[in-house]
Simulated assay, not measured.
Amino acid sequence: MNHSKISYYAELFLYPIVVAALLLFDLASNGFALHQRWLLAALGGAMLWTLAEYLVHRFLYLEVPILKRLHGLHHARPSDLIGAPIWVSVVIFLSFFVLVASLADLQTASGTTSGLLTGYVLYLL
């Protein structure tokens, strides 16, 4: 899917704000002291991004027909603004946050999601 410049680069603007908000949420809920558990969860989320990125490329972009076609277009025309709409990543990351929060707690979900989002933003760059 071709995007305008604004929609193509929106994630680079949105997700650092989300990471900052999650960090501030943790700081505010703990008397403005960052806990090791949040940092470890963020580190784990960043490492999880590496695995997630590999799995998405290996199994979704090369196997699912519509994604395979879009991925092929991206490689055929790398300077075009081709990508999934932002709502796809928002749904995925929000679902991940809710899942981790339901299995662990908000601090772990916040840290892990922050690490995952940071890895994603670095990937986008």
Results as ranks from 00 to 15, higher is better:
L22K: 02
S7G: 03
A28P: 15
Q107E: 10
L27T: 02
Y8L: 10
I92L: 14
L70T: 11
G115S: 08
R37C: 03
L116R: 04
L48I: 05
S102C: 11
L117D: 01
I66M: 10
R77S: 08
Y9V: 09
L116M: 13
A42Q: 01
A101S: 13
T50E: 12
A84H: 06
L67V: 02
K5G: 10
L43D: 01
Y61E: 11
R69S: 10
H57Q: 03
L124D: 10
G45A: 03
D80L: 02
A42L: 15
V88N: 12
V121W: 15
V19M: 13
A33F: 13
G83K: 05
S79C: 06
Y123W: 07
A42S: 15
L122G: 14
K5A: 13
P85Y: 12
L106Q: 11
A109G: 07
L116V: 02
L12P: 12
A42Y: 08
H57F: 12
L34Q: 04
H35P: 01
L27Y: 09
D26N: 10
R58G: 08
K68P: 11
A84G: 04
L70H: 04
A101H: 06
A41I: 04
L94K: 11
S7K: 14
N30L: 02
P65N: 07
T108K: 01
Y54R: 06
Y54W: 12
T108Q: 04
T50L: 07
F96L: 14
Q107N: 02
S4T: 06
A42C: 08
S89M: 11
